[in-house]
Design a protein around this nucleic acid. Structure first.
Length: 902
RNA sequence: GGGUUGGUGGUCUAGUCUGGUUAUGACACCUCCUUGACAUGGAGGAGGCCGGCAGUUCAAAUCUGCCCCAACCCA
């Protein structure tokens, strides 16, 4: 745009003509916001971190397309970002992709129908980059269709060199701090992906299997028995059997302890040992320990210093230890061994079961446990500190902290960060060929790839040898994606100052970390670990945990169930603003169903806002002067508006989007549209009403802006942007080229209460009277604009007579000084239990009974109620009277007024 | 198996921490109304013993215990 005036790009510029056309309007604004960098973070390194609002968004894993979880999560963040931007200025709302690691490798394999094993590492990495780039481009398009106020100039990919450098710096720093070690130890292993994985990547899955009762011979002669039976689901592991365990309390089998067992078929002999970790309830109560079948085997292996017998290799193929079974897969070997056991009469029984099997979450392959040399981040010794860090953050909702706490309390493994994969960030490490001493890269050289780069030394500092071996492993994805606060803040090594520094220190610690409740245990946890160890600070002030979007029957969406709703399908039928209105309906942290009718509710609201704006536009000039004195009805509206601003502000500050949304909708629809606008129709020439109308309307647009960014921008630009003083948020630090930027509603200031005071009781009563008259017309099947000849009101409605008269088409309105002629009798007595209870205690029951039975008296002036032997002062009860009106016309009652229609 | 969270009209939900006697709103349903924006609107109505059972209390959707159901996390 090139004119200082509001841009009107021809026929499809902002205008209130006709109905609201979200399809055209939304994409038009989305494009302009991106093109004009409306949401760009300005940045001011001098600013206090407490006054810059920064969000650390967990970058989506590049493994597929945008789903409802992305939509919901980002929309919630956007509510916070948009509110904060208006309320407090500069906001950083960045965006990243997590495209290094197993997930994107598997995506590449699926997409191209290839196996990574068939490619050179470089080649495969190239393919990953290509596939990811395509997915990212499509994902970005779809993200921009959501209209989130993301700063698209602050984006990153976890595989890009800048991030690789940060990730390798992080590795070096933790190594120097003594927080990392390399160790040959049993690790969880995925035979399909052929890599070690961490505890969090393993999940349980119910699988069908068999229990096999296998007879073991006793090879020594300390007992009368010749054999005993062991139940196992994994007979292929018997070549790896290194011992047999019996529980110390197991009297029946105590005779076996200290003896030797001979392994069927394979013939090797193993000791029988007592250990209380045996589950006596399971199978025969006697259990074999193999290296390794499960985690308990590892514990035993370490506790009893057992030998290592590896029968299964890294691709789940039997090793030479398995003798005749060498080269078979574990499944093949299982069947073959069972058959042979049966033939040789060792198989005593076999039956089907289903049980939980640990599988790799990325490929559903049952995991193995293998001894291998891996890098670990030590975390078990800092559990208390990480727990404390979690405690220092604000949790929205609070209850989610429990999950974090339980996760930490249950930690059993240090964090394994090396992966035997092709695509990923390499460890910046070489090893001395002679003494295995690790050589770390120099900081200034990062990022490095040891496979192609040379180590920074000519000779090993330990032994002087000059040959080195490159580390082939890459970092676990989370070793990098746990650094997002540091990536966003531009963390780097300052060589001159010899310390770490941030390019944008004002961002750190971040104000908000949003994420789903399913990844508290790893993503959030790992991020806290990394950032805390690097900076000594908790990286987030607050964390916002979003729930999951379920299908319309409240069931989890899953591809296998076929109940997945894709965001693009929804957005093809409904405006984004309507989708956002739905997204705001759930309490933060709660799972909630996707229901189409909720989107229709949002659509209705957009239409209402549009139509109300049109009406306001016909009733008052865009920018009326403020009159010296507002009339009661107008002052009442603005006082109510002040109140709404106050609650809504608090709601946004506390991430109570659902509450804010409902409060605003009710006030806008019921109070403003149904009540005030109807009244305003009869007062259009009144300067007081014109001012109130426009003030309220502008404020409504601003208050709705975080929820409904498109429709509010469209109306704002159509109605107000033109006459506004130009408010371009060019930074005061003097950017050399002042850009001609859109004065978006989204960069305006959040409304503040203006301190309007009004007789709220009179306003409330007047609305009651209007409601009563509406009910009267409805019940008498009259149109709402049917004139009423004479209406008398007894009640506090002073100052609102005109309003009542106009909106209800009352020709004569009388305010009564005294209650109209009625005969009254006591209908009921309302007790104030909250003070009555504490005062009279158990007598309350008798008082209730006495009143019900009519056994009570009230003083003539109504000051004292005598019942059940007690005397109640007037503040404890209220007498409800049944009024019978015998005068002319019909009497209507409200809570605080009596109305007579003639 | 252990833990966490939740269960409120037909549906989705507010209220539960901080107990107070007519339980909030929306959608759907029924009746009526074309009022100067909106009939994709407006006014009104019906519909719930707050998962079950005990307990604490003058008083429980709300606090306590047990049970049932669901989701999630961890074995």
């Amino acid at each position: 745009m090139d004119a200082p005036e509001q841009a009107d790009d021809g026929g499809d510029g902002p205008s209130l003509e006709g109905g609201y056309d979200p399809e055209a309007v939304e994409s038009r604004w989305q494009r302009r916001w991106v093109d004009e960098e409306t949401y760009a973070y300005e940045g001011d390194a001098e600013r206090d971190p407490n006054t810059v609002y920064a969000i650390d968004t967990p970058p989506p894993t590049v493994s597929g397309s945008l789903h409802m979880g992305h939509l919901y999560g980002h929309t919630l963040q956007d509510f916070a970002a948009r509110f904060q931007r208006m309320a407090d200025g500069d906001v950083l709302f960045p965006f990243g992709y997590d495209d290094n690691g197993i997930a994107s490798e598997r995506l590449t394999e699926q997409e191209l129908d290839i196996r990574h094993q068939d490619y050179e590492r470089r080649e495969f990495q190239e393919l990953c980059r290509e596939v990811c780039t395509e997915y990212e481009a499509e994902f970005t398009d779809k993200m921009q269709d959501l209209g989130c106020s993301i700063d698209w100039s602050s984006t990153y990919k976890t595989i890009e060199p800048r991030v690789q450098r940060i990730s390798q710096l992080s590795f070096l720093d933790l190594y120097e701090k003594g927080r990392e070690y390399r160790k040959k130890a049993p690790a969880i292993w995925c035979p399909e992906c052929e890599t070690a994985i961490s505890q969090v990547e393993m999940e349980d899955d119910e699988r069908g299997s068999h229990f096999n009762d296998i007879a073991f011979e006793v090879a020594s002669d300390g007992t009368d028995r010749n054999e005993f039976v062991i139940s196992t689901t994994r007979p292929e592991l018997i070549p790896a059997c290194v011992s047999v365990f019996v529980h110390p309390d197991d009297d029946e089998n105590q005779d076996l302890v200290g003896e030797e067992a001979r392994i069927p078929i394979f013939g090797h002999e193993v000791p029988i040992i007592a250990d209380e970790r045996v589950d006596m309830e399971k199978g025969s109560g006697i259990v074999m320990c193999c290296t390794f079948g499960d985690q308990k085997d590892i514990e035993w292996y370490q506790a009893h210093d057992l030998p290592l017998r590896v029968a299964i290799d890294e691709s789940a193929t039997m090793t030479d230890l398995a003798g005749d079974y060498e080269g078979m897969s574990t499944e093949e070997a299982r069947e073959a061994i069972v058959e042979d056991l049966d033939e040789e009469d060792y198989l005593r029984d076999r039956w089907e079961i289903t049980h939980a099997v640990g599988v790799h979450e990325r490929c559903d392959t049952p995991v193995e446990f293998r001894v291998s040399k891996q890098w670990y981040v030590e975390i078990l010794d800092h559990k208390d500190e990480y727990l404390e860090a979690g405690r220092e953050m604000e949790w929205y909702p609070e209850k989610m902290f429990t999950r974090y706490r339980h996760w930490i309390e249950g930690l059993e493994w240090d964090w394994l960060i090396s992966r035997q994969r092709d695509s990923g960030i390499p460890f910046p490490v070489w090893y001395c060929e002679e003494c295995d001493h690790p050589i770390m890269a120099d900081r200034e050289d990062l990022p490095v790839d040891p496979l192609s780069d040379e180590p920074p030394v000519d000779a090993c500092p330990e032994c002087g040898h000059d040959g080195f071996e490159a580390e082939e492993d890459v970092f676990d994805t989370w070793a990098t994606s746990s650094l997002t606060p540091l990536i966003n803040a531009g963390w780097d090594w300052d060589a001159d100052a010899e310390e770490f520094a941030m390019e944008k220190p004002e961002l750190y610690p971040f104000d908000l970390r949003p994420q789903g409740h399913d990844i508290i245990s790893f993503w959030l946890f790992h991020t806290i670990v990394k950032c805390y160890e690097h900076t000594g600070e908790v990286p987030f002030d607050a964390t916002l945990i979003n729930g999951h979007v379920l299908d319309e029957n409240r069931e989890k969406m899953s591809k296998s169930r076929g109940n997945v709703v894709a965001p693009d399908e929804v957005l093809a039928d409904y405006p984004v603003d309507a989708v956002r209105f739905w997204a705001a309906s759930a309490a933060v942290g709660d799972d909630f169903p996707y229901q189409e009718k909720d989107l229709r509710a949002g659509e209705k609201l957009l239409r209402k806002l549009w139509n109300a704006s049109k009406l306001v536009d016909t009733l008052a000039p865009a920018d009326p002067d403020e009159p010296d004195e507002l009339e009661p009805i107008d002052r009442w509206l603005l006082a109510e508006l002040d109140d709404a601003i106050e609650t809504l502000t608090a709601n946004f500050e506390n991430y109570e989007f659902a509450k804010g949304r409902d409060r605003l909708r009710t006030f806008f629809w019921n109070t403003f549209c149904d009540d005030y606008l109807e009244i305003a129709k009869g007062r259009e020439d009144n300067p007081s009403t014109q001012y109130a109308l426009r003030t309220a309307h502008r404020t409504f647009l601003e208050l709705w802006a975080p929820f409904l960014p498109h429709v509010t921008e469209e109306i704002w630009q159509a109605v107000y942007a033109d006459g506004e003083e130009r408010r371009v948020s060019e930074s005061s630090s003097g950017e050399s080229e002042p850009r001609d930027r859109l004065e978006s509603i989204h960069t305006r200031d959040w409304p503040e209460p203006q301190g309007h005071e009004a007789d709220l009781e009179a306003g409330e009563t007047a609305m009651e009277v209007i409601g009563a008259l509406r009910r009267y017309k409805s019940e008498n099947q009259l149109p709402l604009n049917e004139p009423l000849e004479t209406v008398s009101v007894f009640g506090p409605v002073g100052g609102f007579e005109d309003a009542i008269q106009n909106v209800m088409h009352v020709q004569n309105l009388d305010l009564l000084e005294t209650e109209p002629e009625v005969t009254t009798e006591i209908a009921s007595i309302d007790l104030d239990y909250s003070t009555l209870g504490p005062k009279f205690g158990s007598a309350v029951g008798d008082i209730d009974a006495g009143i019900d039975a009519g056994e009570y008296e009230i003083d003539d002036d109504g000051d004292v109620l005598r019942v059940a032997g007690e005397e109640l002062e007037s503040d404890l009860f209220e007498v409800e009277r049944e009024r019978t009106y015998s005068g002319a016309g019909e009497m209507l009652e409200t809570d605080s007024a009596v109305v007579v229609v003639e």
